[in-house]
Design a protein around this nucleic acid. Structure first.
Length: 744
DNA sequence: TCTTTGTAATTTTTT
DNA sequence: ATTACAAAGA
């Protein structure tokens, strides 16, 4: 049925009917096509009921696209019956139905990062710990790491004093979540994975699905992996699709080993590699390969394309970030003049901090743009306030929400009153909402405070009555009016308050959208459904504005494609980005994959820019061009320099880089300037050579008098040949080659 | 309770 | 450079 539209490996993957399947899908190789065709095939030719198929993605956008394509392929009715969703949304759905078995009531709320931080802060308070000594952000990262690796507070073990404290915070945090009947993002996965481990309820969930398909499998963490293997335990119909080369979220717990080790876990898995790229020009594919082939430990694969050679990649040097922004504007103008729609163009950067200058230049040049990322709509204070009201109506136990709105808008309930209330409730072990009903019994509260608290509780009770009969949007409007929230904002009458009011209107609008969508899908629009949606939805999901250039970080670009891409800030320290501590090998590997992802987003045109100097975080830095530029193969790129950079008096310190950088023209090179003495040795990567019987290569075994035997991780120069080598027990050392001997 | 001032932090952030 | 957030002051 479908074969004519698929190439050979795609067709084999799509036709696979049962058992584990691993698909390595190179960038632009049509993986969504394979997944959707396979689903269609299962339904049409293998008699699988659509509601017994689960397809999991990481983003709502990916889920939406998949669903849309399945609708075209299978028809709207069948497609609607399929389970297509993100890990989190899918688990939330399952947890609402099955959570009771592990003590999670169906009206749980999902706490986002800000809420979680508030819970940590309160947990620290419970334990009398100093917030400065245990920054909530760091604590939260620690807790998430445990949860991402499958450990709840009971499984996490303490190995040291610090661990012990961390563990106590973890326990207090989780206790607070359970008391509030709230879950964090990690819990959604972890709790369902745990449910699957229970006999009765676990089997109930397992019996729902005959087939499980996973997109972007390289981004799964240990808990997600466990969830998947539990789900597929009986039928083993687990199909995972991903690309280890595009693994860029290890810092968020993703573990590439899941995809690299899949064939070990499932020795009978069918393995298919999609290596033909349908997206990019030959030159762009070659550029991407130049970067990724230097990656260590990758699954061997050969990305290729039958597309035309295409235009050369443009590599341009600018003087500084303002000059670079001017260059971007110029490139956009020219592209527009050539007839490219602005929405087909994207500007990427490594960190958000780079966006500001670009934004200013675009605004000055009157070029419409849209920035993805940064502060998200649902994270704005007024939106969170409004949603907190809704959440407390659904789940009155949610203390974080109650505390957020108890004095918003100001109703004379001060910090002292709140503190006393919290202390009292903490002692009673009761949700604050309950205590509000019996506020008279709280001894250390003044009469005035009691009165205000009682009337706040009355307000909430009235709203709860309204909640039973109103639609979500009507309820929201009612909340905004009857709490005086809107009135308070109107009273402020500033530009900022106007913007906030506008945001609230937008929120009401989006709730109405939700209701319309729910109706179209034949479902009831519920408060729970709405709240789940708003916490599980990010801004990238709403990206389809016409006629605007898109600005985003490279991370934000994953999964997208554009006719033309401008990749900015291609300098050492910017991209690869280097934090304070000496670059970890793994981190560099991830930067490399990130560069690969960035390059492979482009269909026809790719421009890469770098600067001689850049101001970032208030400091001026002179950086050498990114090593990734030096890795572009011969013939794919064309090199240029802006006028400002060419005329610059200062000589950047990177002129001595011909070893790996071969521009067709290098007008910025001023030979009279001597090369700097202190060249960063790390820059001279891979200077493989032989010195006195010693093989200086990455991976060679060498011996040192003091450190013993070690392995070379990098060949460098410190005025003379040298290496970076790892010695067991000593760690990484930089050693001159003449102090080394070949290992026995 | 609200304002001001000071301090620290600032990769990336699918949910 | 910017910003966010906390502590101290009015």
């Amino acid at each position: 049925m479908v074969d004519a539209e698929l190439n050979e490996p795609q067709a084999v993957a799509a036709a696979h009917s049962r058992g584990p399947l691993l698909v390595f899908a190179g960038a632009g190789s049509g993986k969504t096509r394979v997944i959707t065709y396979r689903v269609a095939n299962l339904i049409a030719n293998h008699g699988v009921a659509p509601w017994r198929i689960l397809a999991v993605t990481f983003t709502n956008k990916a889920a939406g696209e998949m669903r849309a394509r399945l609708e075209t392929l299978c028809g709207a009715d069948l497609a609607r019956a399929l389970w297509v969703g993100t890990f989190h949304a899918t688990c939330a759905k399952l947890l609402r139905v099955h959570g009771a078995a592990i003590g999670v009531p169906p009206n749980f709320v999902i706490y986002d990062t800000a809420d979680q931080k508030a819970v940590v802060t309160r947990a620290l308070g419970d334990l009398n710990l100093d917030e400065r000594r245990y920054p909530p952000r760091a604590v939260l990262a620690h807790i998430h790491k445990h949860k991402q690796e499958g450990r709840g507070p009971d499984e996490a073990a303490a190995h040291s004093y610090i661990d012990d404290i961390a563990l106590r915070i973890f326990r207090a945090y989780d206790a607070r979540l359970r008391a509030a009947n709230a879950v964090d993002f990690e819990d959604l996965i972890l709790l369902v994975a745990r449910l699957l481990g229970t006999d009765a309820e676990g089997d109930k969930i397992r019996r729902r699905f005959d087939h499980v398909l996973v997109d972007e499998f390289q981004d799964t963490n240990a808990t997600q992996y466990r969830l998947l293997s539990e789900l597929a335990k009986t039928h083993r119909n687990l199909c995972v699709v991903g690309d280890d080369d595009q693994s860029i979220y290890s810092w968020r717990g993703a573990d590439v080993r899941n995809i690299r080790g899949f064939r070990r876990e499932y020795p009978d898995a069918t393995i298919i590699k999609l290596e033909q790229n349908y997206r990019s020009s030959q030159r762009i594919v070659k550029a991407a390969l130049g970067v990724i082939v230097r990656s260590a430990d990758r699954e061997p694969k050969e990305l290729w394309t039958a597309n035309p050679e295409g235009a050369p990649v443009q590599v341009t040097l600018a003087r500084d970030e303002r000059d670079e922004a001017g260059l971007v504007v110029e490139t956009l103008r020219r592209a527009r003049a050539e007839g490219t729609n602005l929405r087909e163009i994207a500007v990427f950067y490594r960190v958000h901090a780079q966006s500001r200058v670009l934004e200013e230049a675009l605004r000055a040049a009157n070029i419409p743009y849209q920035i993805i990322g940064g502060t998200k709509f649902y994270e704005r204070a007024e939106v969170k306030d409004a949603l907190a009201y809704l959440r407390i109506l659904m789940n009155p136990q949610s203390d974080v929400d109650l505390l957020r709105i108890i004095n918003v808008p100001a109703r004379g309930i001060g910090q002292t009153t709140v503190d006393r209330l919290v202390t009292w409730a903490g002692g009673m072990g009761e949700p604050l909402f309950e205590v509000l009903a019996r506020v008279r019994e709280v001894d250390d509260l003044g009469a005035a405070a009691k009165k205000k608290l009682a009337s706040f509780r009355e307000l909430l009770d009235d709203l709860r009555v309204a909640a039973r009969t109103s639609t979500p949007s009507a309820l929201l409007e009612h909340v905004l009016a009857s709490t005086g929230y809107l009135r308070a904002l109107e009273g402020e009458d500033t530009a900022e308050s106007d913007a906030r009011i506008e945001n609230l209107r937008e929120l009401v609008g989006s709730v109405q959208d939700y209701e319309a969508e729910a109706q179209a899908a034949g479902e009831e629009a519920t408060l729970a459904g709405l709240l789940e949606r708003v916490t599980l939805v990010s801004d990238v999901d709403g990206l389809e504005d016409a006629g605007r250039v898109v600005l985003m970080t490279v991370h934000g670009a994953k999964g997208l494609e554009f006719a033309r891409v401008i990749l900015t800030g291609m300098e050492e320290e910017m991209f690869p980005y280097k934090g304070v501590d000496p670059s970890e090998r793994d981190e560099l590997e991830e930067e490399r994959r990130l560069a690969y992802v960035a390059i492979t987003r482009a269909r026809q045109h790719l421009t890469m820019t770098h600067t001689q100097m850049r101001q970032i975080f208030g400091k001026t830095r002179w950086n050498r061009p990114s090593r990734f530029l030096g890795e572009l193969p011969q013939g794919v790129a064309e090199y240029a320099v802006t006028a400002a950079a060419a005329s610059g008096a200062q000589q950047p310190s990177y002129v001595d880089r011909e070893s790996s950088f071969e521009p067709a023209m290098r007008p910025w090179r001023h030979p009279q300037v001597p090369p700097p003495r202190f060249v960063d040795p790390d820059f001279f990567d891979d200077r493989a050579s032989d010195v006195n019987d010693l093989s200086l290569r990455r991976g060679s075994r060498v011996a040192h008098e003091r450190f013993g035997e070690g392995k070379v991780t990098r060949v460098i120069r410190i005025g003379e040949p040298a290496v970076v080598a790892v010695f067991p027990g000593w760690g990484e050392k930089k050693i001159l080659a003449r102090f080394l001997k070949p290992a026995e």
